[in-house]
Design a protein around this nucleic acid. Structure first.
Lengths: 153, 153
DNA sequence: CTAAATAGGACCGTTCAAGTCGCATATTCG
DNA sequence: CGAATATGCGACTTGAACGGTCCTATTTAG
C-alpha cells in the first residue's frame, strides 16, 4: 500500500510540535502524546529512537523531556522516517542487494529504483520546519504558492 | 517502510514481459510465472485482477492466456499498482477521510498529502513501455539521458 | 527521599501480505 | 464427445510486522 507506519507519523507530529514551541526548554513524552492523543508509552519509545539517532536531545528527571537537537530547518522528514522505520525501498529487490533472488529476471527494479530515489529526494527536501510552517499548508497569502521542490526523475 | 507489495511487483513484471513479447497472441499465467520464478497460482490471481480492471484481456481454454488490453505506452505503473494494491496513501490519515480520528491534531497530513500526490504523479508518468524499454534503464546511447518526468511539489 | 522523567527489554494481539488448495467454468483439440 | 489446458474465484494457512502494553531500572529536580 505504500504507506508510512504510524510510528513515523507520530514521530513527525511530535517533531512538528516541538518546532512549533521553540520557547519551551523541553517537552515530555506525555506532553507530546497528550497533544495528539497518541499512546504515551509508544511515543516515548519513538522519541527515544530519535534521540539515539541524534535528532533530539533528551533530559531525564523532573522537568525533563525532549527538544530538537538542531534547527527545525535542518531536520528532514527523510531523516525522521529513516530513524524510525529504517531504510525503505519501494521494490522488494533493492538496488542494494546484488541482484534479485529471482535471477536476472527483475529488470523492473532499475526504473523503480529511480522512483524510489525520487521519493527519498522529496522527503529529504521537506524539513520539520516546512511541516510546522502554515505558509506551505494553506495557500500563501501574498506570494505565489510555489512548490517546495522541483525535481527530475 | 513505504514499499510496494510483491504482488504489485509481480504484476509489473508480468506486464513488462507481455510488453516485450507483443508477437505472441497470449501468454498463460504459468508461462509468465515460469519466466520469473513466481508462484504460478499467485500470479494467476494477480492477472485476473488486472483483467477485471481492464488492463489485460484474457482468454480461457487451451492456448489461452493474457495479453495487454492496450498499448504498453498507455498503461501506467500507477494503474497497475492501484489495481493490485488498491488506493495507497502515504499517511494513515488520508485526505479522503474528513479528518483524523486524532482530532484536529494531525496538521501533518497536508504537506504529506503533497508528497503522496508527487509519488502518484511519478508513477502515473511511467508506462509499462518505459519499464520494458532498455533506453530508459541503461543510459541512452545517442540522446541525452533525460528524466522521464519533471514535477513540482 | 520522592516524584517525574527517560531508557529499554519482554511480551502480546491483531492485521496483512504471501502463498496454497480446491473447485467451477470455459475452450481448444484429437 | 471427452480430455487437456486455461481462466475465475473463494477459502484457508502461515509468518512476519505493526501497534501497543507492561514492568523495571535509572536519572534528576525540588
Amino acid at each position: 500500500m505504500l504507506k508510512l507506519t504510524k510510528k513515523a507519523d507520530y514521530g513527525l507530529m511530535a517533531l512538528k510540535y516541538l518546532a512549533e514551541h521553540p520557547e519551551t526548554p523541553a517537552l515530555s513524552a506525555k506532553d507530546l502524546a497528550d497533544a495528539y492523543g497518541i499512546p504515551a508509552q509508544l511515543l516515548a519509545k519513538i522519541l527515544q529512537r530519535l534521540t539515539k539517532t541524534g535528532l533530539l536531545r533528551s533530559h531525564a528527571g523532573m522537568n525533563g523531556g525532549y527538544a530538537l537537537a538542531r534547527d527545525a530547518r535542518q531536520i528532514s522528514a527523510y531523516e525522521v522516517i529513516l530513524a524510525i522505520d529504517g531504510p525503505f525501498f519501494i521494490t522488494s529487490c533493492t538496488r542494494g542487494a546484488k541482484s534479485c533472488e529471482l535471477t536476472p529476471s527483475c529488470t523492473i527494479k532499475e526504473p523503480l529504483a529511480r522512483v524510489n530515489d525520487t521519493i527519498a529526494g522529496v522527503l529529504k527536501s521537506i524539513s520539520i520546519h516546512d511541516l510546522a510552517d502554515r505558509e506551505h499548508s494553506d495557500a500563501a497569502p501574498g506570494r505565489e504558492r510555489q512548490g517546495l521542490v522541483t525535481l527530475t526523475v
